[in-house]
Design a protein around this nucleic acid. Structure first.
Lengths: 256, 256
DNA sequence: TCAAAAGTGTTGGGGATACACCCATGA
DNA sequence: TCATGGGTGTATCCCCAACACTTTTGA
């Protein structure tokens, strides 16, 4: 690595952007905020912001997450999730020279998986924030839009691409890890966990085989002893996420 | 995202670092360059350099790769590899405020998988460059070192961590993709491909079952019609990498 | 003739799918 | 009593591990 020569290598702005996913009403949803100023004023975007001089990338992402949602993140290999904890991991970095028309910005995107939350609170400069089904945020290619800021307008910057990458990461990662439990409250039933898989993958799973599979995988689920009938029908056992992070053998995602 | 205020958010230097892996003499090896100046002068490090004002992150990584090795990278979803092509993909981004003692540097690490190469040529400011088995570069915790620049000294900066992440990515990715062929020359035998898996995973695989598995996976291997006896024994069919990128079902990595 | 590597056949078992069937509650 | 979701049992199939065995070369 040669010495740093600012004239040859101009400085970059570094930001973090967040793909915050949750499952609401049987659909995979992402958090979107409305931009309050140009460029893309009035359009929807992923939450994010500049990294500060003294903080690590993960710290910056966790700070933005609290500012935008009130959620506290726990580290990937950390202790069990707190009451309103969320999984946070680095996703990828986007640095196309033209991705921001104002200046050279490199954005380190992070992926957050959160349980179903109360309505998000708009933080910082965002005019508003909301959960939107990921398909409604992604299937916007070339459609006619009535006005800027319409929920059917494409996301600002390259955020559609970032969101698509985050969704793909989540879809593949719940196959071979216990991360799907990050979408559930602290205590949940096997059926609720199954509906998470169904929403994220967009498929129907056999309830009987799913039940056998997840309860038979050591360390995946820990029974709490309680039961609930909040889904109707026969009372269901309540579970917490177990210590296992890797699923072996993995959950099999049906061919589409 | 608030407006950019340089006083609140000082600029960052952005670099790319490369984890270049190959298989030589039945061992997984990484490319290391000797640092020519402080900090960590004389110590081994991963190749890398600053991102220029007008280039994308992947472009910067490909440029550094050519400068350091003469290798040309092909994109993940691109056309078949050229003669000395190598697989290149983004790995992760490292931005600890203290990772470089001189200033705030955010490094976007990339992973390169290359076939066995002629001896690397030292480029740029590196005093020298060499292939080293990854264990010899990683198993350096707390050992006594005779002198700086010794091959047994730990890697500079946080490069040991970056290398470990790259190795782990390669180990897991050859399970479910055809990426192991990136370690092979354009034409190769099933036995040579098997020795790649064995070197990367550090295990022994059953030659008979491996043969059936890879030749039975549609799109993985395409016979070229030729044969070779360069490994001794009965002549073996030569293959090229097929179009398939994802392996379904995956190669199973034996339990350790 | 022998060593070495390539390749084929066969067998047994684990786990997945598909689906019949029973269980325990609220309305 | 019925609808609803929870949970168990079972047959079939596919794939993988293990390993005996044959093939084709160089030395």
């Amino acid at each position: 690595m040669p010495p740093y020569d600012p004239s040859a290598f101009p400085p970059f702005a570094v930001t973090v952007d967040l793909v915050v996913l949750t499952v609401r009403r049987h659909a995979l949803c992402a958090l979107a905020v409305r931009r309050g100023e140009p460029p893309f004023q009035g359009r929807w975007a992923l939450p994010g912001g500049f990294v500060r001089a003294d903080e690590d990338l993960a710290e910056a992402a966790a700070r933005e997450l609290v500012e935008e949602t009130g959620l506290h993140a726990y580290p990937p290999e950390g202790s069990p999730p707190p009451a309103y904890g969320a999984h946070l991991e680095q996703l990828a970095t986007y640095g196309d020279p033209k991705r921001d028309p104002r200046m050279r910005v490199v954005s380190v995107a992070h992926l957050v998986l959160a349980p179903d939350l109360p309505a998000p609170r708009a933080g910082g400069d965002a005019h508003s924030a909301r959960w939107a089904p990921v398909e409604s945020l992604l299937d916007q290619e070339g459609s006619a839009h009535t006005r800027e800021g319409d929920l059917t307008a494409p996301l600002a910057f390259d955020h559609a691409r970032i969101l698509a990458d985050g969704v793909e990461r989540a879809r593949s990662k719940i196959e071979y890890s216990s991360l799907a439990t990050a979408f559930c409250p602290q205590e949940f039933t096997v059926g609720e966990l199954r509906r998470v898989y169904e929403a994220v993958w967009g498929v129907a799973l056999d309830p009987r085989n799913f039940h056998r599979k997840v309860t038979g995988t050591p360390g995946f689920l820990v029974p709490t002893g309680g039961t609930t009938t909040r889904q109707g029908g026969r009372p269901a056992q309540l579970f917490r996420a177990g210590g296992a992070t890797l699923l072996n053998p993995p959950m099999l995602r049906p061919e589409v």
